[in-house]
C-alpha cells in the first residue's frame, strides 16, 4: 500500500512583497488590513473576558477590570481602536474596489493615504470622545 501513496507537492502562492515586488502603498495597505483584522482578536478576547467577569461576580470583575484598565489594557484597547478603524476604512475601500471603482493607480494611492490618515483621525476622536 505504501508504494501506491503518491505525495503531491502543491506550491503555496509566494509572499510577493519584498522578493518579487517593491514595497508600495497599495500592497502595504492591503497587508495591514489582514494584520489589523486578525490582530483585533486580542482586543476582543480582553473585552469579552472583562464582560464575562462582570457577569460572574464583583470579585472576578475587580480582577478583570484591573487588567483592562492597566497600562497593558490601555495599550491593547488603544491599538485595537486604531486597528478597528483601519480595518473599517479599508473594508469600505474593499467594497468600493469590489464594485469596480477606484482601481486607477492614482485613485488607489489616494484611497490608501485616505485610509491611513482616516484611521488615525478616527482613533484620536475615539480616545477624545470615549
Amino acid at each position: 500500500m505504501a508504494e501506491n501513496k503518491r505525495v503531491v507537492e502543491r506550491p503555496l502562492s509566494p509572499f510577493m512583497i519584498g522578493p518579487y515586488y517593491r514595497v508600495q502603498l497599495t500592497s502595504v495597505t492591503s497587508i495591514l488590513t489582514r494584520i489589523t483584522g486578525n490582530g483585533l482578536i486580542v482586543g476582543v478576547m480582553l473585552a469579552v473576558w472583562w464582560l464575562f467577569a462582570a457577569a460572574v461576580s464583583l470579585a472576578y470583575f475587580a480582577v478583570a477590570n484591573r487588567v483592562a484598565t492597566s497600562w497593558f489594557g490601555d495599550l491593547v484597547f488603544t491599538c485595537s481602536a486604531w486597528a478597528v478603524w483601519y480595518h473599517y476604512l479599508s473594508g469600505l475601500r474593499h467594497l468600493y474596489f469590489d464594485a469596480g471603482h477606484g482601481l486607477e493607480i492614482a485613485t488607489a494611492e489616494k484611497l490608501g493615504w485616505g485610509i491611513i490618515a482616516g484611521s488615525f483621525i478616527l482613533t484620536a476622536l475615539t480616545i477624545l470622545i470615549v
Partner: peptide, 13 residues
C-alpha cells in the same frame, strides 16, 4: 458598539 463599550470601559461594576 465601540462608542457604548468604550464608555462602559473603566466604569464600576
Amino acid at each position: 458598539w465601540v462608542y457604548i463599550v468604550g464608555h462602559a470601559l473603566g466604569q464600576d461594576y
